[in-house]
Amino acid sequence: MFALDDITVLSLENGISAPLCTRMLGDFGAEVIKVERPDVGDVNRHWDSVVYGDSSAHAWVDRNKLSVELNLKNESGTAIFHELAGEADIVVQNSSPGVVERLGVGYEDIRQTTEDIIYLNISGYGRDGPYSDRKAYDMVMQGETGLIPMNGSPDAPAKIPLSVCDINAATYGTISALLALFHRERTGEGQELDVTMFGGMLSWLGYFPHKYWHNDELPERIGMRHHLLTPYGPHETADDQYVNYAILSEAHWELLCEVVLERPDLLEDDRFADNERRVENRDVLEPMIESFIAEESRDYWAERLTEAGIPWGDVNQLDEVLDHPQTEHLELVKELETEDGPVPYIDNPIASDSLEFAAEPMPDLGEDTDDVLGALGYSEKEIELLRTEDVI
């Protein structure tokens, strides 16, 4: 059975953050009704056309959903949204600031008729405060939350290629929706939730705020190295490959020097006596280690690191990751059957002997409009009238 059987999610979503959140809820078995602008749909549908004419983003975030085209600028469209919300457990929205209130579908509007509704707002900065009226997208948020200045090489900053701020908000959104369902199960109460990309990313800043608060230290860009630990990260080998390893303890450092590098003399150097001193003297230590690693092949170092019990791995290209032996073992790549052909996808990574996960293909724009309205009690004639009035 699905964990979220009999749970309905109504989503006014766009882009990545809310769509990914509701896709995860759909993976868990919820019925997700995606409300989209007539003839336009979610912006993510139009970013490319590599999946049989559909976009890669749409294929990523829109499986396990129903698509309903609904004009919320029309009073009849707003009324239908309220009807749908009356049948829903959760409403999710990530519209621009103030939009849902102007359309009459904000939390206060919905709770008038559906008191126990769970209403999740996903936004950039929140619904109040000095930045509340700003639109936010992943690249913008990577800059605002300090990721860009600390990422990249010393000579140039860089964005993180993944939509990490969107993924963060989607993850916290999913967690918050599940918590609210659990709370409602116990108390019978619905609630309004706010998840912000800004707050979510600050919560992921890890030890860096503590380095600043206690040591007045701002993270410098150090490329493939680690801000807190050294030696650490990918090192180029003699055969133009990389071996990627992590020295996480003094025991690892001793093994690296004695077993892997066969340089026990490094253990006698006061500059490298502990991790903090190694980091302080990384401009001396790291080039030295890099020169050692560059003398032998990837296989040579792989054998030695394995023998020493030091965590290590390869630096794989995307195609190698998708064909990785562990990817195959964990059965992480599945296929959705569509009218156009099979669509590979990365499966939900949660493994369970008891839980099942849904796997329905992403919907065409508005393909479920008639069925969803029919389930609300609208006749074919009424649905056709709504279509002629540009409501759907």
Rank of each mutant, 00 (worst) to 15 (best):
D5I: 13
V195Y: 02
E13L: 00
G106E: 07
Y119F: 12
A359H: 13
E250R: 03
Y212H: 12
Y125C: 10
R298F: 11
G26D: 06
G233T: 09
D347C: 10
K211E: 14
W47C: 01
T171D: 01
G223R: 00
P38I: 04
G374R: 08
W213R: 10
A177D: 03
V92F: 01
L386G: 06
A169N: 03
I148P: 00
D6Y: 06
A156Q: 14
Y131Q: 12
Q112Y: 01
E13N: 00
A79M: 04
S176C: 10
E384C: 07
A79D: 05
D138G: 06
I346H: 11
G152Q: 06
L255K: 15
V51G: 01
E382K: 11
H210D: 15
F182T: 15
P157H: 11
A30F: 08
E36V: 07
V68L: 08
G98M: 05
D371A: 14
L267G: 12
T338R: 14
D5T: 15
L12S: 06
A251R: 15
D89E: 08
T174V: 04
I117M: 13
E101I: 02
T8L: 02
D299P: 06
R186Y: 05
G188E: 01
D368A: 15
N244V: 10
P361M: 07
G341Y: 10
V372H: 06
W47K: 03
N44K: 09
F81V: 06
A251W: 09
E380P: 04
W60G: 01
S67M: 12
G126E: 02
D239N: 11
V51P: 00
Y212L: 11
C21L: 02
I350R: 14
D155P: 03
Q241M: 07
T145N: 05
E250C: 04
N121H: 11
Y172H: 15
I90F: 00
V9P: 09
A136T: 10
R37Y: 00
I346Y: 13
V195D: 03
V333N: 03
A158T: 12
G377M: 08
I7K: 11
T22H: 04
A180I: 06
R278K: 04
H252V: 11
S132A: 15
G309P: 07
D353M: 09
I122R: 05
V284G: 07
S95R: 01
N94F: 00
Q142F: 07
R263Y: 06
D62P: 00
V343G: 08
E262Q: 14
D239F: 04
V284I: 15
L305C: 04
W213C: 08
D340T: 07
V343T: 07
E108R: 11
D390C: 07
D133A: 13
A156T: 13
H324F: 11
